[in-house]
């Protein structure tokens, strides 16, 4: 039944209403691939992709296709996808500890810097940390 509805839906009107697109996407989670012509070209229409889960709630893409090409894309967000950063950090984050020292003398296990390319990796700090003798052991001090 759903499959029938689905085929009718995508082979039907060239310009589909928003409501129908949404209903179709939610009622057939895995059948959101749009209809293709015999030559493999996508038929004209507005298609809503499957809902994907992100840290900002569920989102869906909606694509407008004309003559086999994408002409417009929009992203449908769930109401709670706003407030990008405040929602995220629910617990307190660790405090930054300012400490300008030679990296090799600092007791660290990773380094965060502007992206190192693999070519430069052999000479990089992270490689040194990975290779260092003490990398077999890490000491964590904790207060009792």
């Amino acid at each position: 039944m759903i499959i029938d509805g689905y085929i009718v839906f995508f082979n039907g009107p060239r310009h589909l209403s928003t409501k129908r697109a949404d209903e179709s996407a939610s009622s057939s989670t895995k059948k959101t691939a749009p209809a293709k012509s015999k030559t493999g070209q996508y038929l004209n229409g507005i298609y809503t992709g499957r809902s994907v889960s992100t840290e900002w709630g569920h989102v869906q893409v909606r694509a407008t296709i004309q003559n086999g090409k994408l002409t417009y894309v929009s992203v449908l967000k769930s109401p709670n996808s706003e407030d990008y950063s405040r929602r995220l950090n629910k617990r307190a984050l660790p405090t930054y500890e300012s400490e300008a020292v030679k990296a090799q003398s600092a007791n660290i296990t990773h380094v965060s810097g502007a992206t190192v390319t693999y070519k430069g990796f052999k000479a990089s700090l992270q490689n040194a940390l990975n290779q260092a003798k003490r990398s077999n052991e890490s000491q964590n001090q904790q207060a009792n």
């Binding site: 030679k102 090799q104 660290i108 810097g113 502007a114």
Partner: peptide, 13 residues
């Protein structure tokens, strides 16, 4: 423990 690299000297954090 993650060191933040010094952008002016990559041997330093």
């Amino acid at each position: 423990d993650v060191g933040i690299e010094d952008p002016f000297d990559d041997t330093m954090i």
